[in-house]
Design a protein around this nucleic acid. Structure first.
Lengths: 212, 212
DNA sequence: GTCTATATAGCGATAGAC
DNA sequence: GTCTATCGCTATATAGAC
């Protein structure tokens, strides 16, 4: 079998099994069996299980984060709906990727939803680094659009944006379960519309709520 | 050692190690060693590792969810800040519990943040069931307060509320990392204020954002 | 109720033939 | 680049003495 074919088969199988069972629980034996490859192939191509994990994330997140930066540059920050434009630029690439990737929300989506809270320090660090440039550039855009927000408020609100996105991606099945057909968590257009409506209002909210 | 002491020690150790290493990766050997108990004690007291996992979640979530229902009943749904009151009733019990539990955000918080996206179907089902009554009662309150929202909009927005909460609880370290001291993710008062300000604005947002 | 000892099984990684 | 075979280790679970 060709070098590239085996590599890709291993990535496909790993993504699928990491998503379904978790990174820790998916064994190299299962992965290589599903990929139709030999057990030793993982260490040959990726050095270790850790290397395979990294490659699985980078393959999907690399293009998404590049597209995010491209779309952000195309936003008109002077427009009345600039906030909606920026949020859409942030959210659409990942929703599109999940819609196109095999397995979608039930594949890489579930894995992605767990990425930030993975027990493994190495995995979390890697995913965070993959997002660092996006975070800085988008924070700067929000700072420009919402100059009345204090710096901590800005950080918190971007954190909540990430939370809503992450939850939508990783826990869509929860919404489906209690919505009983009223919502379509797997429809990227519906998800994007609902996310942008909610998050733009949240970002624009007045600085302080009364909490007793 | 007394029956209750061993049981509680096992729950404490399990909570701590599940939080740090993940449910799958924390072994009964580590847990029983930390608890000062014998390896066989887990199977004696909880039947299996699965039974121990369930007991760890129920011990913390039971009281939180009861308090949520109690606080919801005390909300004045006719007040101008009714939405803020309801959101506070939903969020405060879990933030208080995390502040008081040993380890706080780095203990049960991290475990809690992963609960909805756990690979194990059994764990997810159990956690979801633990929340079912809360979800139904709070959805009803939001339905009353925001009658202009369509049913799917209501579901989506409650989903986003859960996402922001879950992310705040489980991924506080992410906020701390990129905020570089400007936010205090572990301060329950600050977290609650920021959450309520953002989420109440999001819930009140107009129905449809323009998405091109 | 708690202990030791062990049965049974799976894991990641690697050496070395082809 | 792919294979077989195996090393060294850890896991959950349980049987049976105390």
């Amino acid at each position: 079998m060709d070098h590239t074919d085996t590599r890709e088969s291993l990535l496909d199988a790993a993504e699928s099994l990491f998503s379904e069972h978790g990174i820790q629980a998916a064994s190299l034996r299962q992965i290589t069996q599903m990929a139709g490859a030999n057990l030793a192939a993982v260490n040959y191509h990726f050095g270790s299980k850790e290397g395979l994990v990294r490659a699985v994330f980078v393959r999907r997140l690399g293009p998404v984060n590049e597209e995010r930066l491209r779309l952000l540059e195309q936003c008109d920050l002077k427009a009345a709906d600039a906030l909606e434009q920026v949020l859409t630029a942030f959210l659409r690439p990942v929703l599109r990727m999940l819609n196109e990737a095999p397995g979608g929300l039930h594949g890489f989506g579930r894995l992605m939803g767990r990425a930030f809270s993975e027990p493994s320090e190495d995995v979390r660090k890697m995913v965070f680094e993959e997002f660092r440039e996006n975070i800085e550039r988008y924070l700067q855009a929000f700072r420009t659009l919402l100059p009345h927000l204090s710096e901590p408020e800005l950080m918190w609100r971007f954190h909540f944006v990430a939370g809503a996105m992450s939850h939508t991606i990783g826990c869509g099945y929860t919404l489906e379960r209690f919505a009983e057909g009223k919502c379509h968590a797997k429809d990227p257009k519906e998800a994007l519309e609902q996310l942008v409506a909610f998050l733009s209002a949240g970002m624009r909210g007045s600085s302080r709520a009364q909490v007793n």
